[in-house]
Nucleic acid binder design. Sequence first.
DNA 1: GGCACTGTAAGATGCTCATCGAACACTCGG
DNA 2: CCGAGTGTTCGATGAGCATCTTACAGTGCC
Lengths: 114, 114
Amino acid sequence: MANQTTSGSHRAAPVHTDPDEVSLLTALSALADSVRLQLIRELAGSPDWTRSCGSFDVPVGKAALSHHFSVLRGAGLVEQRDEGPKRVNRLRREEFDVRFPGLLDLILRADDPE
Amino acid sequence: MANQTTSGSHRAAPVHTDPDEVSLLTALSALADSVRLQLIRELAGSPDWTRSCGSFDVPVGKAALSHHFSVLRGAGLVEQRDEGPKRVNRLRREEFDVRFPGLLDLILRADDPE
DNA sequence: GGCACTGTAAGATGCTCATCGAACACTCGG
DNA sequence: CCGAGTGTTCGATGAGCATCTTACAGTGCC
């Protein structure tokens, strides 16, 4: 079989959406959730491809977690790749920033009034 | 009666929230709605204090419309003032931009892929 | 004062979505 | 080949929210 970039996996590849095809409403809806914000921030604090889905400290079960990553993929925010039994993540900084300039920076910088 | 800045109104003044007190999640949630996006865009295209609530071309009844404006006020996006029987609006561009730099510009510029 | 106009408040409804539990699929190491 | 670890899918559940209808409260004009 064609040797894939990652390392041959026989699993169903995760479905990605290019940021260019994402509507503003979709992007905002994806970001308007505390769990997903937390995921993005935590992901931003780690090097690319170093964090598996289960390695995030969020207060939801793994089913919900899987759902959230699906939403983030659909919004062009996260890219995933299978690495052995794990699915590792990468924040699509540049690409997303081209589509929605400044939005990601805003999310990562914002200090909330609490 | 005390002549107010606007012009004396005996009505309950609309409750506003300062953008500084708005959390990122609140702002994003307020923006993650097609009707409210439409309101903001239409409002941005008109001079301040020239648009009454009922003057917007959105596909909802006036009760829902009133609700949406309430959400926008709570997110520090819109300021309202009573002018006679009407309630006129103003987009809080500068103030909101200080709290969330670039966000409003992003919303107003974004061309959706359709 | 009465009436049209404008917007809010309250209650009901329906839909979307975040969540969970359980079952399943895949990978890797013994 | 089994078993532990990882993640997805499915069905169900519950909460939140956008919406509507109806009723109500101001405002201004005749």
